[in-house]
Amino acid sequence: MGFGRRKVVNAQDELEQSVSRLRELLANADLDNIPEVLQLRKRLDEGLSEVQDSAIDVVHEAKRHARHAARATNEYVHDEPWQIVGGALAAGVVLGFLLGRR
Rank of each mutant, 00 (worst) to 15 (best):
L25Q: 11
G2T: 15
L95R: 07
R64M: 08
V8M: 05
Q83I: 05
A62V: 10
P81V: 04
E24I: 02
V85M: 11
Y76Q: 06
H60G: 07
S18G: 07
W82K: 13
V93Y: 01
G96T: 06
H65W: 04
K42N: 09
W82E: 15
D32H: 01
V58R: 14
S18R: 13
M1E: 06
D79G: 07
Q52I: 06
H60Q: 15
R23Y: 03
G100M: 02
E24F: 02
L95Y: 11
I56Q: 11
V93M: 06
E24M: 12
R102Q: 08
H68D: 13
V9S: 08
I84K: 00
K63G: 07
I56H: 12
T73L: 14
R23M: 09
G92N: 08
E24D: 15
N74H: 10
H68V: 08
D45F: 02
V19N: 01
L25V: 13
K42S: 11
R101N: 06
M1T: 02
R21K: 15
V93Q: 00
A72M: 13
D53N: 15
P35N: 02
E14A: 09
L22S: 04
L48H: 00
H65A: 11
R23D: 01
D57E: 12
N74P: 01
V51L: 15
A72L: 14
Y76G: 00
R43S: 09
E14R: 12
A88S: 11
E46I: 00
D32F: 05
